Simulated assay, not measured.
Amino acid sequence: MPQIYFSLTAGRSGSGWLAKFLSANLDVNAIHEPIAIEDFGTRMPEVRQLRSFNTYGSNKEIQAFWQHKLDALPQDINYAETNHTLGKCGLIEALAHHPRNSDATVIVLRRDLARQCASYVNRHDFILISTLWQWFLAPDYPNRIVNAEPFLKMGQLGAAIWYALEMECRQTYYERCYGDRIRFVNAQLEDVTQPAGAKQLLTDLGVDRTPILPPKTNANSVASSDELVEKIDAVIRTSQFDPESLVSQYIALRGSLDMAERRAAA
């Protein structure tokens, strides 16, 4: 059967590069982000859908979006999309219950958290709320794993750190809760952009070949300073961040990101 590939990642973590890597090494024309005007709301989540999932969970509107998107996937050729917004509005929940889940692989792509956050800060990604709504996560969403309050006093920097930690927890959450229904493959950006790590990623994807490594994609024009990276790293270490523990607490207290149990009890 043709295979489908998605990524579960935070953005500024190599998702654009991953699309080029998959295109170069697999029999697939990988898409990074479908952003034509007609794609929003059909193939690409729009602000309403991202905000809706993170406020209400997998309601009827979210379910309709995913039914349309997943049903429209090619049936006769491999398909790959590394769009990082998908994992923030119900991709995993929808895929787990869709007939194509047995053909799907989700690449859990991570990057060094401090350097990832520094990239957000350099691009001023966490200043405008509209940017958070469309591309990232807003710290005031009611459904979140990591408490944002301790970080918000740091302004844009704190919001970026909270987001990176939240996404790390969501990756942990999804692998734990849906690993029995979806195939997850882990990839660390700093490793897979090197020959040995790229070879291991292909092996994990079931491909035996010498990897082709594309150049960096969508890199910042100004590199993050070591001082900024060290400052962010110190904040993360001081917070004693433990995604496994935070996910366990969240599941015990809140149940699930799709809020299915809360909707059923309403």
Rank of each mutant, 00 (worst) to 15 (best):
W133Y: 11
W133S: 12
Q134R: 05
F136A: 02
A138T: 10
P139K: 01
D140V: 12
P142C: 09
P142S: 10
N143D: 04
R144Q: 07
I145T: 01
V146K: 00
N147G: 05
E149D: 13
L152G: 01
L152F: 05
L152N: 03
L152K: 08
K153A: 14
K153W: 07
M154W: 05
M154P: 02
G155F: 04
G155I: 06
G155S: 10
G155D: 10
L157W: 01
L157Y: 01
A159G: 15
A160S: 15
W162K: 03
Y163L: 04
A164S: 14
A164C: 12
E166L: 02
E166D: 08
E166V: 05
M167K: 04
C169P: 03
C169T: 06
R170V: 13
R170G: 02
R170C: 10
T172H: 13
T172L: 07
Y173E: 00
Y173T: 02
Y173R: 04
Y173L: 06
Y174L: 09
Y174K: 04
R176S: 13
C177E: 14
Y178L: 08
D180A: 12
D180Y: 05
R181H: 13
R181A: 11
I182C: 06
F184E: 03
V185M: 09
V185E: 10
V185W: 06
N186R: 15
Q188V: 15
Q188P: 03
Q188F: 12
L189C: 08
L189Q: 01
E190V: 12
E190N: 07
D191P: 04
V192H: 06
T193F: 08
Q194G: 11
P195A: 11
G197F: 04
A198P: 02
K199E: 14
K199R: 15
K199Q: 15
L201Q: 00
L201S: 00
L201N: 03
D204F: 06
D204E: 14
D204V: 04
L205V: 10
L205G: 05
L205S: 09
L205D: 03
L205N: 06
V207K: 04
D208I: 14
R209G: 06
T210K: 12
I212E: 15
L213M: 13
L213P: 03
K216Q: 15
K216F: 15
T217Y: 14
A219M: 14
N220E: 13
V222N: 12
V222F: 07
A223E: 15
S224P: 08
D226N: 11
D226L: 10
E227N: 11
L228W: 05
E230Y: 10
E230V: 05
I232K: 00
D233C: 08
A234W: 12
V235Q: 10
V235C: 08
V235A: 00
I236D: 00
I236N: 02
I236Y: 05
I236M: 05
R237S: 11
R237E: 13
S239I: 03
S239R: 11
S239V: 02
S239N: 10
F241K: 01
F241A: 03
F241H: 05
D242R: 03
D242Q: 11
E244P: 02
S248M: 06
